[in-house]
Design a protein around this nucleic acid. Structure first.
Length: 345
DNA sequence: AAATAGCGCAACCGCGCGATA
DNA sequence: ATATCGCGCGGTTGCGCTATT
């Protein structure tokens, strides 16, 4: 790479611009106009490189700059343009008079991205976060560290398989599908989502601090087994779940042992609204024997870890149309997949 | 009251491209 | 044909302010 002379010259000032420097640059540009930036510092009497002067003029001193918060119209325009242009900030800025690419980039990264996520929109693709899955497809997430997960749509079941718990954070993952079915004895009103394990990743420190000792103490018996962690939702009627923050979840190996169906509206708790008292969440962990491929509900070991949810999951059940009911839950579960993939990539 | 975390923003950095010597 | 320069772009860093613990 060829380093520019301006970058290598010592004694050039860096960092924040003082009002005096601003005045010198402003006076120079307004008097002589924008010409060769590399000669500006010398002519204006500044100990800065030309590049720094250019940036300061474009992003701050230019008289035609619009200051202050972005209007709703500007915000909408940025989102639409980003959908077409991607991260081409300069091109986006050219459509917004008085705004700089830097300003728009910062606004995007600090506000708009989060806003879109909250609305369930992937800020990179502008597609909904929830991905519709085809029935009978089996989703496997294979991470490069040996942490393997499988999510099933058959019978609206999601299961997560951990071969080496506790799992380290992964940098990459691949998503594949196949059509192998997952036999389930669960009733059509029992659903499992992949959320708990994946959201555990986002609060990995507290998760591991609680989960690891438990896993290590059980290491000898864990070695020959695969493990499933499931979040199950049982309902007899319509229910809606909103995940607003984090919550502690009790695991009992093989058995449902905790319900997080509190109506607590605090941001740190999961909230479940149900039309009746039958809707609830439960979380279970069970081991599976490699050879017999059967769930082993043996020991009743309880452990606890906080679960940090990425956003709102809406699930609706329709008693009269089992498949429609399933579809909505499949969609919600797939949204968790998206969330997971974003956080490990 | 002090320490810490989170956030927004200004500025920097590395790189690529086109023009020119 | 090659090296250098000037400029613009997108990604990243780090400062300073504010909120939270």
């Amino acid at each position: 790479m060829v380093r520019h002379s301006c970058c290598t010259k010592p004694k050039l000032k860096k960092g924040l611009w003082s009002p005096e420097e601003d005045e010198k640059l402003f006076n120079h540009i307004t008097r002589f106009g924008v010409g060769c930036w590399s000669s500006v510092p010398k002519l204006a009497g500044l100990q800065r490189c030309g590049k720094s002067c250019r940036l300061r003029w474009i992003n701050y001193l230019r008289p035609d700059l619009k200051r202050g918060v972005f209007s709703k119209e500007e915000e909408d325009l940025i989102v639409s343009l980003h959908q077409i242009l991607g991260n081409r900030w300069a091109q986006i800025a050219s459509q917004l008079p008085g705004r700089t690419d830097n300003e728009i980039k910062n606004f995007w990264n600090s506000c708009l991205k989060k806003k879109l996520m909250k609305q369930g929109i992937n800020p990179q693709t502008h597609e909904p976060l929830l991905t519709k899955l085809q029935p009978n497809n089996n989703i496997n997430i294979i991470c490069n560290n040996g942490f393997k997960t499988a999510a099933e749509t058959q019978n609206v079941l999601r299961a997560v398989k951990m071969e080496q718990p506790p799992f380290p954070l992964s940098n990459t993952a691949e998503l594949t599908t196949n059509t192998s079915s997952f036999s389930s004895s669960l009733s059509s009103h029992q659903f499992s989502l992949i959320q708990p394990v994946f959201t555990g990743l986002s609060s990995s420190q507290s998760y591991l601090s609680l989960l690891k000792p438990m896993m290590e103490s059980s290491q000898s018996q864990l070695q020959s087994q695969q493990y499933f962690l499931q979040q199950s939702c049982f309902t007899d009627n319509n229910f809606e779940s909103q995940n607003l923050g984090s919550d502690s979840v009790i695991f009992s190996e093989g058995k449902e042992c905790s319900s997080s169906s509190s109506n607590n509206t605090s941001n740190n708790n999961m909230m479940v609204n149900s039309n009746n008292n039958n809707g609830r969440f439960s979380w279970e962990s069970c081991s599976t024997d490699h050879h017999q491929q059967q769930n082993k509900f043996d020991q009743s070991e309880i452990f606890q870890f906080p679960v940090n949810f990425g956003g709102m999951i809406k699930m609706e059940a329709d008693q009269t149309s089992p498949w429609e009911e399933d579809q909505d839950l499949v969609t919600a579960a797939a949204g968790n997949l998206d969330y997971f993939l974003q956080h490990i990539s």
